[in-house]
Amino acid sequence: MTATDTYSIDRAQTRRPSRARSKSVLFCTECGYENPVGGDWEISQQGSHERRCCPNCDAVVTDR
């Protein structure tokens, strides 16, 4: 029979699997394009108003 060693591991010491995308990713609902917030979105700004549009299909992604 083979001996089995058991170790207690604190949850804080375990690593989470790496994710392919950042939490700050925007998605275009029209064509499915995705890119980080600081990516290549087309940004137009008038005063404090900002609009981000998709570089593929020109759909408005954010308007604030």
Rank of each mutant, 00 (worst) to 15 (best):
M1H: 14
M1D: 15
T2Q: 12
T2Y: 13
A3M: 13
A3Q: 08
A3I: 14
T4C: 09
T4H: 11
T6A: 07
Y7M: 00
Y7T: 06
Y7H: 08
Y7S: 00
S8C: 09
D10R: 08
D10M: 00
R11S: 15
R11P: 15
R11V: 14
A12N: 14
A12K: 15
A12P: 01
A12V: 14
Q13K: 14
R16H: 15
R16P: 09
S18C: 13
S18P: 12
R19F: 00
A20R: 04
R21F: 09
S22M: 08
S22N: 12
S22F: 11
S24P: 08
V25T: 08
F27L: 13
F27C: 10
C28M: 04
T29V: 14
C31R: 10
C31P: 07
C31F: 10
G32T: 07
Y33H: 00
Y33F: 00
N35L: 06
N35I: 01
P36A: 09
V37I: 11
W41F: 14
E42Q: 10
I43D: 01
S44N: 06
S44A: 13
S44L: 11
Q45S: 12
G47W: 08
G47A: 06
S48M: 08
H49R: 06
E50F: 07
R51H: 02
C53A: 04
C54F: 04
N56D: 15
N56G: 10
N56R: 14
D58T: 09
D58W: 04
D58H: 11
A59D: 01
A59F: 04
V60I: 08
V60A: 04
V60D: 00
V60H: 00
D63H: 08
D63Y: 06
R64T: 13
